[in-house]
Simulated assay, not measured.
Amino acid sequence: MSKEICFIADSSGGLPREILERHQIKEVPFYFKFQNTDYYCENVDYTGSEFYRHMEKNPEDVPQTAAPNVNDWLGALEERYVRGAKNFIVTTISSRLSSSFQTASLAKDVFAEQHDDVQVEVIDSNTCACGQASLEIAIAQMIESGKAFREIVDRVNQAVGSVTTLFVVNNLKYMEAGGRIGGATAFLGKLAQIKPVCEFIDGAVRPVKAVIGRKNSLKTMMDLAISRVSDWSRLIVTVQNAEFSEDADYAVDYLRKAASYSGKIYRSDLGVVVGAHSGPGAAGIGLVEASPLLR
């Protein structure tokens, strides 16, 4: 990571751990709790695997999540400032899904008042999970390539609206509990074994297609993803899953064969802030066409 630019991201993107380490990205965690527990920090007190195993063993214990607070963001900014950082790029989950963008923005204002030698840009990713991760990987690559701070910010703000984030769920109860679908829809979906393919559009969840059967839903998700790509040469792809790695394997293999895609495919656990509403067995794919970003 460039010493000139510090990159800070909330944990909702579920960035692969190796990307965080390689690019020295500071991750600010979301909080979550179960019915009879205190709040935990994502990826600090609990791993994604532990989180989903708990959900599988305790299906009625639907978790609650909370965004990073202003002090969390200030702590991350101060930590990197004392190490020499002066230019900060901060990314968050869609502001329509969480207050993370708002708390990061408040922290930015406080931090800028305390330090007159810094630049801080908070970017609303307008998405989350695998789409957010792909966008953040593109940012990390731009920083690594030596692009200027303002150029990176301008390019990312232009690219935010073109990120593709598609996902499928294995059980509708968590989307019902989170208010994403109504009770009647959930009941009928369970009877018919409907596995909806959903997308984040303009920062909010939208069902794209109702599909019967798990493999059909995964295939439909991948076909939709493939149909969105116009330039395969500089594509950033992230596949995420919630404890069902065989489904992620299927998605990766399908993309390789159906699109003859031989490029890098990043993989990671689906983060808890999305997983709390999608449940174990959720899987998704995020796409960013990086040519306009990295040229």
Rank of each mutant, 00 (worst) to 15 (best):
T127I: 07
L97Q: 08
R214T: 08
E121P: 12
L166T: 01
V168D: 11
T164W: 07
A192I: 13
I194F: 03
A177K: 12
T220R: 05
V160S: 12
V211Y: 03
A140D: 01
V160C: 11
G161F: 02
I123W: 02
Q193P: 14
A148T: 10
F187M: 12
V197D: 01
S134N: 01
E144N: 14
T164A: 11
A210V: 06
G182K: 03
E151G: 09
Q158V: 15
D109W: 12
K209E: 15
F187S: 10
E151P: 13
T185K: 11
G161Q: 09
L135D: 02
D202I: 06
N216L: 00
G131W: 09
Q141K: 14
S145F: 04
I137K: 01
E144G: 07
S100F: 08
T127F: 06
C128L: 10
S162A: 13
I123N: 00
S125Y: 00
S162P: 15
A104T: 06
V163S: 08
E113Y: 09
P196D: 02
S98I: 04
C130T: 12
A133C: 00
L166V: 06
S98P: 01
S105G: 09
V205H: 03
D202R: 13
D109N: 10
C130L: 08
T185S: 15
S217V: 03
A210P: 14
L191C: 12
L172T: 00
I181F: 00
K209P: 09
C130E: 11
F111A: 02
A184C: 09
Y174N: 00
E136G: 00
D202S: 11
A210S: 12
A148C: 14
T185Y: 13
A138D: 05
